[in-house]
């Protein structure tokens, strides 16, 4: 397939198609609507299904029903729409159903605005719904990764029987970049727990209820054993010039792209600065961060929120090294100049 110059949001749908996603249920919301529109255009051409649901809640529950039938299925929305879907996500985590939820984040709280923010970090990474559960959260920073990580999300969802989130700020969703398409996934794993329509499985019951405290505790412990396995195997991050750095900047999504430009500029002036970009926000690269603290590197976290991921960074390094923070909100994206100034400011404080 030829390389294409497309929006991140369209790359999500093409990745989903290549991953074998059979159905998409969604509801219009800016800045995520291109995902629903691309799904509405492509899926029927491939003999698959797109449906505009009556609400965000309707959409996540259609996903819940389709996931129980064992097919690969997804929905996408933006921040306020994701708030509405949290109930369904909690139930899917409890009932151990595989599905993919894409969040193209915008400004909040409330209606906020439609400009990019990263203030959904807590509602996705810390679990915005009720109960003891975790979500795998993947954070692409370019259109290519919107495709690749969406495909990866479907694999992880099936492997661990859990909802998986692809979370990108509105900037990454709207940005157009060249995308090369990986090979389509042809072998999908069997799902003997689903409504398979076979005499061996018809007693399968999908539920998230456990009325006896001991039963529910056992179930939650089972979920957390699974989460420990995910933490051991699925952490992903990218580094840039970290080895000799005195200061390591940490950012995800579009912030990581701006940080990289800033670091290149500062490096040209002979200053030793590097970048660590978490690709999985959960599981979080906390062990790598702890090692950076062991080496005495100073850290500077930059986010498009009032400081959310920075809490996880501080936990990982246990206050052994200084952790600086710089955030912009309201849909403002830090400029190259701002990033440069912040890096210089924090370097001088070394």
């Amino acid at each position: 397939m030829a390389k294409q110059f497309i929006k991140g949001n369209e790359a999500v749908v093409k990745g989903a198609i290549l991953a074998g996603c059979q159905a998409y249920y969604g509801y219009p919301i800016t800045p995520a609507s291109e995902i629903a529109e691309a799904a509405a255009y492509y899926l029927p051409l491939l003999g698959r299904t797109f449906l505009q649901a009556e609400s965000e809640i309707g959409a996540i529950n259609m996903v819940y029903g389709a996931a129980s039938a064992g097919i690969r299925v997804m929905t996408a929305s933006s921040s306020p729409g994701i708030s509405l879907k949290q109930e369904g996500i909690s139930y899917a985590a409890g009932a151990e159903l595989s599905c993919v939820v894409v969040d193209i984040t915008r400004g909040g709280p409330g209606l906020g605005n439609i400009a990019p923010e990263q203030s959904d970090y807590n509602q996705m990474v810390k679990g915005g719904g009720h109960g003891n559960y975790k979500l795998i959260v993947l954070a692409p920073n370019c259109a290519q990764e919107m495709c690749d990580l969406t495909m990866h999300a479907f694999d992880l969802a099936d492997r661990y029987r859990t909802p998986v989130v692809v979370m990108a700020d509105g900037f990454v969703g709207q940005m157009m970049e060249p995308v090369e398409f990986p090979a389509p996934v042809v072998d999908l794993p069997p799902k003997p727990w689903a409504t398979a329509g076979t005499p061996e499985t018809y007693k399968n019951l999908i539920t998230s209820i456990d009325l006896e405290p001991d039963d529910l505790e056992r179930h939650i412990n089972h979920l957390y054993a699974k989460y420990a396995e995910i933490e051991a195997n699925e952490v992903r991050y990218e580094e840039y010039m970290v080895d000799d750095a005195d200061l390591v900047c940490i950012g995800f999504g579009v912030v990581s792209r701006i940080l990289q430009s800033g670091i290149e500029r500062v490096r040209a002036e002979g200053k030793k600065v590097g970048l660590l970009r978490p690709i999985t926000l959960w599981p979080f690269p906390e062990k790598r961060l702890a090692r950076l603290a062991d080496e005495g590197k100073k850290l500077l976290v930059m986010e498009m929120n009032k400081g959310m991921m920075v809490d996880d960074v501080r936990l990982a390094v246990q206050h052994r090294v200084p952790v600086g923070f710089y955030g912009r909100v309201g849909g403002n994206v830090p400029s190259g100049r701002e990033v440069y100034d912040q890096i210089m400011l924090h370097l001088e404080a070394v």
Binding site: I57, M62, Y64, S68, A69
Partner: peptide
């Protein structure tokens, strides 16, 4: 909606 998802799948 759960039934709709099931029926289509």
């Amino acid at each position: 909606p759960v039934a709709i998802g099931m029926r289509i799948a």
